[in-house]
Design a binder for these strands. Sequence first.
DNA 1: GGACTCTGGATTTTT
DNA 2: TCCAGAGTCC
Length: 670
Amino acid sequence: MAEQTGSDDLLGSLNPGQREAVVTGASHNLVLAGAGTGKTTTIVARIRHLIRQGTAPNRILAITFTRRAAAEIRSRVQTESRAMEGVGAMTFHAWAMREVRANPDVFGYEGWSVLDADDQAQVMRGVLGRGKRVEGLKASQIIDVVSFARNTRVTLADAIRAKFPDQTIDPKAIGAVVRAYEERKKERRYLNYDDLLLIFAARLADPQVAAWVGSHYDEILIDEMQDTNPLQWTIIDPLVPHTRFYCVGDDAQSIYGFRGADFASIHPFSERVPGARVMRLEDNYRSTQEILNLSNWLLSASPLEYGKHLRAVRGSGAKPELHSFETPQDEAGWIAGELRRAHEDGLPWNTHLILVRSNYSGRAIESLLIENDIPYVFFGGTKLLESAHVRDVLSALRVVANPDDEVAWLRLLTLVPRVGDRTAVRAFDALLAAREQGASARDARASALVSMPEWLRAGLDAIEDAANRVDDAVGRAAAMLTPVLATKYRNENWDARQRDLVHVERLAASRRSILEFIEEYLLSPVFTSELTAAPKDDDHVVLSTVHSAKGLEADWAFCAGVSPGAYPSSRALGDADAVEEERRVLYVALTRARDRLCVTRALFHTPVRAWVGGPYAMDVLEDAYFLSTLPEGLVAETVHVPQRAPRPGPPPGLAAPPEIDLGVDLGDLE
DNA sequence: GGACTCTGGATTTTT
DNA sequence: TCCAGAGTCC
């Protein structure tokens, strides 16, 4: 039996636990896979197994957390054979978007535009008007709290209490603003990320729709199940009777609580999904035992019972290193030096992974990598479609694709010299009025934009003519705006920005429409450095935020900035759940290393900022600091004291300082 | 009145 | 890098 033999090859490289997880015949499954236990391997093997068993690839859907994870699964599945092509792999948001766009008769919302976080804040700012704040909250904070409420499916008032426990905020005042914002969003036919999930979930509540959607798939696999939030569960629940679910996750790696995920939500999985079988993978294939000892200790120091104890199949290796420095700059400099040395010794750059807590802290390291000529990619850095100059160019495309897109119009119009907010708003109102009288988009532009320069009207017409060749349209928009952008960004790295525009043009090739192009990269962003920093070959260092590091591993991992006040973050203090999530963030970081783990920190330079309820003193941060109870012997510690050459004291016998006349010579004025 | 320029300050984490 | 605010210029 040829099929059976193939199956044996496929399963041969798996351990008994993985094999069992791959061939399970239960209708629904949850695989609790600890860090490094072969989670992705298991998912990929499961997909291959299903296909070998006769499932058509396009009846399998893998829900992943990021575009990168989706690409990884797709490529690992496809290396086997072309027969594997067609497996869907995408995020929840991309899935919802695809269903909504492909089936306007079922879901509606045809022609509505998706807004990213910045644009949502822009709409909210418009609602807030002059003061730009309500109850002390600014636009982006209100957007966040609304999103939290929807993703956790609680009321706005509860979300406000959860997000801002120390502040007295009148939920009614926020509610009024939010209502006005929702109204404006509807008027302009805007959707945000949450709306996509909500629309999908709301229609799935209809049993007929659920049966229909479910009938498209034999199995839906969900990666990173621990980070699935209540809103996403409302998509899963109605589909349970109609397809199979294969979920993989690890509660100890749940780090998306701020987005509504609850790490405990996978515990009652088998009650929530009737008939589900729960399996565990506990043998770690990634790291040495010493690295796991440190990781295991971190969890065991928690008041929560994680019940994790990772065992290293690979056995023993070097102790993790703990390096302390005076300042973050010293820390970053040392890391860059280590990478350089290793490269000179013949190790490729891609041996290394550097993990940081925030984008901000990554930038210090990024600049030292640049200084040392080390090729890198920064996952978590600036996203291409979120950078100001790319948004400028996209605004020209957006107004062509959707003439009602107010945010895009205002952005585009204010690029015109001598046009500010007021003039732009007036022009937009004129456009709307013309459209309401039945003018085509092109005619409305011709009549309403009479006072605008000719290049704008002609340029938009040219973009419209190229709308079905999206890369061409991007090129035309960039050409049209290059003169004004060159001025706007003349002191802000214009050359590099101009190169980005070429990348955008390339990404747009083969997209069917402007909206499809924008939506694809809005829902699955590309980081700028993925396109620019390591263009030559694949050998580069990976710098990543811990949150973007899901699924990443490397021979050497540097966890940077592991200082008091950072782990846990001072913002989490006072909230036990938040502190626990911080612990899991560090756990995810530590478990990325295969052979060498370097934990680095700047001890004498911790920023102690004023915070709601007063600044935290250093000793409070020290008390909460996870590594302050680190037992002897788990790590090899090095304290790096900067080498300062001693300077000789002043010459002996110097006269006492004389009084010096500090007044200015007034000359004739006297 | 509106546009533009400069400066200082702050920045968890992401679809 | 980005935003907000103040001050300046047309």
